[in-house]
Design a protein around this nucleic acid. Structure first.
Lengths: 464, 464
DNA sequence: CAATTTGTATCTACACATTTT
DNA sequence: GAAAATGTGTAGATACAAATT
């Protein structure tokens, strides 16, 4: 029975008592979902405690638990014991970083596609593949995981980024995102928890949402995720996996040094976590002569390592290699052959050609040089604002020294002719102390445009 | 408290009372899963009623409900109210039809890959694409759903198979299976129910399992699924979607005539089902001059239609077009850009070239001619055994006139040098009255091998 | 066709852990 | 540092619907 008059304390979510239909929890969940999707309840809003809603509606409070549970499983809300339940970021709008066609005068510092300046060598490789005349073999249906010589090329490429593996534990996928899809579907069940950085790759967030996986943000510092925090979350939460970008993480640009990698590897081993290691920066470090041992190696190959070739070689050829521990082999191959059937042999063959003739290394070096040049440009313009003297990379992570709504900032900038993405798009939970902008250095088209775009951005930040 | 001595009635699943650990339902589910995966409990086995297990273990019986529920969600078992709970087919072994490498002397009547005899025209198209010299555009990162001219080609191809749509509601995928993956992930949640034929495409069964979707088999006759049965299941079961292969369904070879299509369309509309229409045979019918209106057209475009190009053109180029109703557009594009990022432009461009220069139609006609020839061969050898005078297609569905365990039959035949797949691999539920073999006519290599393989099969069937 | 068997959906009860005050 | 607030996990009770007998 209601004890209080709830007219006085306004509940952020106040379901209509009269509209209650008999499967209570279902009708309540529908109402809550509707209000979130329509934007009546904004991201980050604290919902009333379960017991209050229950009191208000005169229901048992675990019935409200079911309501929150249903919405939590859909990724609409998340709860923190002792603190409350909150509306998820990304619940209403679609935060996917799809490249909607931009106005011609807008300079794109949003997308991180990688420089496409070097397609000449790729074109040549394509012609070489066609000339070789064994297309007819490639056009048959065979070897779902990739042809042996392609896998051998992949293994060779992996070696120079700090991963030692074998062709039998490696497969070809249609890009890193596809490899992630297969790994997540094959190894995880809905409701499983995966540890991630508090800011992480937005496509991974969306993918997890599509599969109803729960992301558990784990605090970190300038050297990446904190091992003790990870261990704590595992103890509390029955975490099953972890997603990491150990080199030049997207969007924070953090790279994990060897010492921290060892500590993290120890926790991952002890807690029995399935590690998805997304190599997005290792190739660029390698192109600069630096190879840090991968977590995959530190775990003696008992994890999954994804090596996308789109960023380092060519955005249009969708190829990634994934290598995995023996205990995952059966499930990954099963998933691969049911989700992809197989990957395009033609694309894989071109990438193979590039690795074998050495052009892949050349392209990577040139892309690194471009990134270095862009990084210097950025450093010159944002010396005071961006503390981290980051390595060369395709983007930067710029602290916003204002409390202005970051979504507004994004809109303002778009009107001024620059597209950037604000940190909310990458946040796993709402309510960060500090906002950021991710500034891409790789999609402006050329350096003149990049400079112009960065200047527009700087001018705007001076003003606010 | 236990009322009976259960030592007398042996329970098919008798969990060890002593081994019970505190989250009861969890330890019980683990035990049940283990016994199923190890094969202690075979597919089709009837499990004890929930109340009996509860009685035996002295637990509340809804706790056993939780145990069964957990295993049901994993696809290990299924329950039918009033009848009981049964171990799913496919629960233990991996039924995926992966082409494990066969012994050299084994003739493959298992895989349905499509003839790869016509790669010459495909090779030419590849060269044409390379020569045209706009590879550099294709190698950029752009248009996740496919380039406009590629989509236009897709729309044109779709027209001649009985689908009228527009480029704005069409996208390119890395093969039909990839399109299905995107559609299922984007539009369905774990636990959702999808109506299917009692025998259906085994990769779809596996995909549904990976995503924890529940397949509801709906009875059919020689003209496909029965509308009244579909309607009945929808009334009972809160079915959300339906998967159909209206022309030359895999594996049953059934094609749905127009009248039945109309009836099914009406039920689909009335029940608000999401239709996934997998065009696996329409192109071959079209190549023979027959075009039946698609369910997509009968539903005025408010469904999803998947048109794979691998079987009709080239197994190695992984391209499919999917067209969809406007109300699915946002979710499909969201899914597409998070699951695939984008599809390989190169493969799509080659397919586009083949459609535009007309070679695609030529290839389709030639593949049909091969299928007709193979069909005659089959008809001559199995006149008495295979009643259905099926249309030309890549496979046949052969009733097994024996009660011999079909898995044994498969093994026997493999030893005699023929690979075929038995109906259990395609069954959604266990316990069919009649067993079948799916006999592929398209992967033997050439007609000499095909004939030899079919003769081996016939000889074996004469003997048993 | 009524009674019984059997699975499913929903709501309730309670113990527990963490965070905040 | 104890008490209160708060979400989560597990088990139980009840109503109901379908299939079988």
């Amino acid at each position: 029975m209601p004890v209080n008059s709830f007219d006085q304390y306004p509940l952020t979510w106040k379901p209509d008592k009269a509209a209650l239909k008999r499967p209570y929890y279902r009708s309540l969940a529908a109402d809550l979902e509707d209000k979130i999707r329509r934007g009546v309840l904004q991201a980050g809003t604290k919902l009333p405690p379960q017991r209050e809603i229950a009191d208000f509606l005169d229901l048992n409070y675990t019935t409200i638990t079911r309501v929150y549970e249903a919405c939590r499983k859909k990724g609409l809300i998340y709860g923190i014991t002792g603190r409350g339940t909150f509306v998820s970021p990304h619940a209403e709008e679609d935060t996917t970083l799809v490249s909607e066609t931009l106005r011609d005068d807008v300079i794109d510092l949003g997308a991180v596609n990688g420089y496409s300046e070097h397609s000449l060598l790729v074109e040549r490789a394509t012609e070489a593949v066609v000339r070789k005349g064994y297309l007819r073999h490639l056009y048959e249906y065979d070897c779902p995981a990739g042809y042996p010589h392609q896998l051998a090329a992949g293994v060779r490429w992996l070696e120079q980024v700090g991963v030692h593996t074998a062709a039998e534990r490696t497969a070809v996928f249609s890009g890193a995102q596809n490899a992630l899809t297969v790994a997540l579907l094959s190894l995880f069940d809905p409701g499983d928890r995966i540890a991630v950085d508090p800011y992480t790759y937005s496509n991974f967030i969306e993918l997890a949402k599509l599969m109803h996986l729960v992301l558990v943000p784990v605090k970190g510092d300038g050297a990446g995720m904190l091992p003790e925090e990870l261990e704590r979350q595992c103890r509390l939460n029955r975490v099953k996996g972890i997603y990491l970008m150990p080199a030049f993480a997207n969007p924070t640009t953090v790279s994990i040094p060897l010492a921290r990698r060892r500590e993290l590897a120890a926790v991952i081993r002890d807690c029995g976590l399935i590690l998805l290691e997304d190599d997005i920066g290792a190739w660029m470090a390698a192109a600069g002569g630096v190879t840090v041992p991968s977590l995959f190696d530190l775990l003696h190959g008992e994890s999954l390592y994804i090596c996308g070739m789109t960023k380092s070689l060519c955005p249009g050829l969708r190829i990634a290699f994934m290598t995995y521990g023996g205990r995952f082999r059966k499930q990954i191959l099963h998933g691969l052959s049911n989700i992809n059937i197989k990957t395009s042999s033609l694309d894989a063959e071109i990438i193979t050609e590039l690795i074998l003739n050495g052009d892949a290394y050349r392209i990577a070096k040139e892309k690194r040089a471009l990134a270095e040049k862009a990084g210097q440009l950025f450093a010159a313009l944002f010396a005071g604002r961006c503390p981290r003297a980051a390595e060369p990379g395709y983007f930067r992570w710029l602290p916003l020294g204002t409390k202005k709504d970051p979504a507004r900032v994004e809109g303002d900038l778009l009107r001024r002719g620059v597209r950037v993405y604000h940190s909310g798009r990458f946040a796993v939970q709402a309510g960060a102390a500090q906002d950021y902008l991710r500034v891409s250095l790789s999609s402006a088209g050329d350096f003149r445009h990049l400079q112009k775009g960065l200047e527009r951005l700087r001018d705007y930040l001076e003003e606010i």
